[in-house]
Simulated assay, not measured.
Amino acid sequence: MEEQTIFEITHNMDKITNKLIIQWNKLFYEDLGVSHILILAHLMVSGNSRPSDIARTLGLTPATVTHLSEKLVRKQLTVRITDESDRRVIYLGITEKGSDILHKAEEYGKELRRNLFERLTNEEKDQLLSIFEKLNE
Rank of each mutant, 00 (worst) to 15 (best):
G47Q: 15
K19R: 05
T17E: 11
S49L: 03
L128D: 08
N18E: 10
L40A: 01
Y91C: 04
D14Y: 08
L20E: 08
N18H: 06
R50T: 09
R56L: 06
R80Y: 01
N115I: 13
H103R: 15
I101L: 09
V45M: 15
I54N: 01
L68I: 04
E124R: 09
L120V: 05
E124N: 14
I94F: 04
L68R: 01
T64M: 14
K97W: 03
R119K: 09
V89F: 02
Q76R: 15
G93L: 11
N122K: 15
A41V: 03
K15H: 02
R88Q: 07
N122C: 10
S85A: 14
R119D: 03
S46R: 10
L32H: 00
S69M: 03
K19Y: 10
V45T: 08
A41H: 10
D100Y: 04
Q127F: 12
S52G: 05
L43S: 02
K15L: 14
V45S: 14
H42N: 05
F132R: 08
T17A: 12
V79M: 14
F28T: 05
L92C: 07
N48K: 11
L20G: 06
L72A: 01
I131N: 08
D86M: 03
K75H: 07
N48Y: 08
Y29R: 12
A63P: 06
E30P: 02
S52E: 09
